Each structure stands twice: as C-alpha cells, then as structure tokens.
Amino acid sequence: MSAPRDQHFLVDQRAVEKIAGFVDVSGRRVLEIGPGEGVLTRALLDRGATVVAVEVDPALVEELEFLFADEIAEGCLQLVPGDATKVDFPPFDIVVANLPYSASSKITFRLLESGFEVAVLMYQKEFARRMIARPGKPGVGRLSVMVQTYASVKPLLELSPNSFRPKPQVRSWVVRITPHEPPYPLADRGVYADVVRVLFSYRRKTVRKALRSGKDAFAPEAIERAIAGLPDDLLQLRPEDLSLEEFALIANRMSGCLHDELPARG
C-alpha cells in the first residue's frame, strides 16, 4: 500500500519493538495517532494494551478493520476515523504514536490539554530539538516554552530515513513526554498561552514592544496595566531571553495578579 501524503510508515521492526516497550502498556488504554499499516498497533496489542487508534485516511481505516477484525471484536482495539487535530479522543491513559510531521505542533498542544500519564511520541528531529530548547537559550520558541511549562521531555531514540517507507528527508526522534504541574503559579492558563504566543509572534522586539503589538489578544488598557507592573529590565529583554518564571510573571500581570515578585536577574 502506498503512503498518503505526509505519512511515512515505520518499517524497522527493531525500532517498533523499542518504541512499544519504552513504557509499560499492559492493561492500559493507549492512544495511537496515525497507526498506518498497524505495525506499532500490533506491538502494543501484543504487550497487553487496549489501543485507541485515530487514523485520518479512509483506505487505511478499511485495511486496519480487516487486519484487526478479531481484536476489534474482542474490544482490544478501537478505531477512530478522523483528523487527530479535531476528532474527539475517547478516554486514554498513555500515548504512543508516530505523529505526522505537518500536524505535530497542533497534536502535541491538544494532547497536553487533554491530559495523559506519559507519552512516547516520534517527531521530526529538528522539531523535537525545539521542544527541549531551554528558555533563554538559542532555538527557544513558543513550542519550547509551552511544552516545558507543562511537561518534561526526554529523547529516547534517533531513527534514520531508512527506518521508514517512503523515506523522509529528515531524521526522527522518539521522545518521552511526562506531564507535570507548571513550575510557577499561573493565574490563568489561557492568558499564559496567549502571552507566550504574542511574545514569540514579535520575538525580535523587546517585551514592552511585543506586548503592545498584541492587541489581537489583549485590550490596550490591560497591556498598559501589565507593563506598568513589570520591572523595566525585564521589559527591555527579547522574548527568547525570558525564563519560564518571567513568562509566568508577565502572564500573571496580564491576568491582574500583582504578587509573585521576581528575584533580580543574576
């Protein structure tokens, strides 16, 4: 079967076994996004998982229904046709998936909002590197800040294009994502997400100018009120130079909170 656009089937069986074994899935409900031809699905089922597989391609759904007819009848596998950026997810505990490159960001943010115990996910290598770029360091961006605010990320495995059919033009990383509470108090998580988005939309500007450019997200009076409550040295920084604590402070000021003073930058 030929691969749909943007889908690269994992054909390296040793990699499949490693990915399926990175977390204990026995007796757990595992969400798999983009099961493709079902090689990872089979490995998860063999380890005792109940799999919820979300597949956007109707031809692949039909093929999976045929290949896994017994498992579907037994209730071990639930196929969910649809786009993983939009379709409702049935209840799940763990995520194990080879994500489509073009939807990696949207799906990752959706998963973090949905909540899960642990995820083992495959990404394009450069995308995964951005996820672990430390705030205040080169390469940091909206993805880095949002993921690290709500989860820890650990690289587990690197795969070459030879592990896939058809071969992608890039290398891939498999990472473990473990959710945690934000390291600093957030008055409003929605405001925090908007602040991070706005600041990185104007990443070459200072924080002061970037906030004032964010009139699509915040009322001008709210922006000016927040700026008045923030340290001047912070307002002169660029967004890529901020720590997670400083992002939290800016968002809390935008939410109207006036506590959580920052220590002086060292």
Results as ranks from 00 to 15, higher is better:
S2P: 13
P4D: 05
P4Q: 08
D6N: 15
F9T: 13
V11Y: 05
R14E: 14
A15R: 13
V16I: 15
K18S: 06
I19M: 11
V23G: 09
R28W: 15
R28S: 15
I33M: 09
G34Y: 04
P35M: 06
E37K: 12
V39N: 01
L40C: 06
R42V: 04
L44Y: 13
L44D: 14
R47E: 09
G48A: 04
G48H: 10
T50D: 02
T50V: 08
A53T: 01
V54H: 04
E55C: 05
D57V: 00
A59V: 09
V61Q: 00
V61K: 00
E71K: 00
E74F: 00
E74W: 00
E74M: 03
E74P: 02
C76N: 12
L77Y: 08
Q78V: 15
V80P: 03
V80I: 14
P81S: 11
G82L: 14
D83R: 08
T85N: 12
K86Q: 15
P90I: 11
I94W: 13
A97M: 09
A97I: 10
L99N: 02
Y101W: 06
Y101L: 12
S102E: 15
S104M: 12
T108G: 11
R110C: 14
E113Q: 12
G115H: 04
E117C: 00
E117S: 11
V118A: 10
L121E: 08
M122K: 07
I132T: 13
I132D: 02
R134M: 06
R134V: 11
P135L: 05
G136W: 01
G139W: 11
G139E: 06
V147F: 13
T149E: 08
S152A: 12
N162R: 12
N162K: 10
N162V: 05
S163K: 00
K167A: 14
V170S: 14
W173S: 03
W173I: 00
V174F: 07
V174M: 08
V175Y: 06
I177P: 01
T178H: 02
P179M: 03
P182M: 09
G190K: 03
A193Y: 02
A193V: 04
D194I: 00
V198K: 00
S201Q: 10
S201Y: 01
R204W: 11
K205G: 11
T206M: 07
R212K: 13
S213L: 02
A217T: 07
F218W: 14
A222N: 10
R225D: 15
A228Q: 11
P231E: 10
D232T: 11
D233K: 09
P239Q: 04
P239V: 09
E240M: 04
E240I: 00
S243Y: 08
L244N: 11
L249M: 05
I250P: 10
S255A: 15
C257L: 07
C257T: 02
L258E: 14
D260K: 00
D260H: 15
L262R: 04
P263N: 08
A264E: 09
R265I: 12
G266M: 01
G266N: 03
